[in-house]
Amino acid sequence: MSIALSRSRALAFSLPALIAILPFLGACFYIFRFSISGDKGTIDGYSIQPYLDLMTPFFGRSVWLTLKLAFVATLVAMLLAVPLAFLLTSLRSPLARRCLTVTILLPLILNLLVQAYGWILLLGPSGVLNSSLRSLGIIDRPIFLLFNETGVLLGLIQTSLPLAVFPIVSSVRGLSQEHLEAASSLGASQWRTFFDVTVPLLRPGLFGAASIVFAFNASAFAIPLLLGGRRVQMMGVAIRDMISPLFNWSGAAAAGMILIFITLIVLLFSSWLVRMTSENVRH
């Protein structure tokens, strides 16, 4: 039979897609080459000066802020994603399931500007939250939630939540019913079953989801730009500022390489964790 795919035909079938992704790979290489350029504006010679120039307290603060916000946002997103995944998998009605899917998925796909408008309307000085709290007499003066870390954090949690929920949903679907039944028939309480059976079984999926959410949040740009203004200099925004007012292209490329490096470390660390924990489960 001639169904078995010959090597040459497999290559021919893959070629269009490889050509389509080539510009992306080229862009990755270009940014790396620029980050070790001797000149700030063009690729010229080799130097590690762009990296040395980044060793400033300003950039250090930006890295720290990025890590902190991404970490907190990931933690909260995971805390909300697990119950959402449970709810999504236990809904019986197809209509309810579809509504919930759309509600969760929309923030990932919808134009980030529209969502930023939503947060501005919610959190602004005359926004929904402040007017409600004021009419209830809880506060006298508006509390400031926009253009600081709180606003950015909420935006990050909202946009990264779908990236956490859907991988967890597939792990939950793969969960064996017998384990849960065994735990409950042996008299374990719901909490006990959750912490001793469900979470350990889900752990590989949880680490996988958390690492993608973290990488997504650490490299966020539009949300900190729109909700944080100049006050919350996450790395994405700091890198943009190096280009737009300063024209420091090689510096921006070097900062970008550091950002890529951070996300890569997190992804590798989590895949290592997944391998470790899934071995533990098997034994």
Binding site: F24, A27, C28, Y30, G236, T263
Partner: peptide, 9 residues
């Protein structure tokens, strides 16, 4: 991959 970096590249 960070979108900002992709945009700049």
């Amino acid at each position: 991959f960070p979108l900002v970096i992709l945009g700049i590249a």
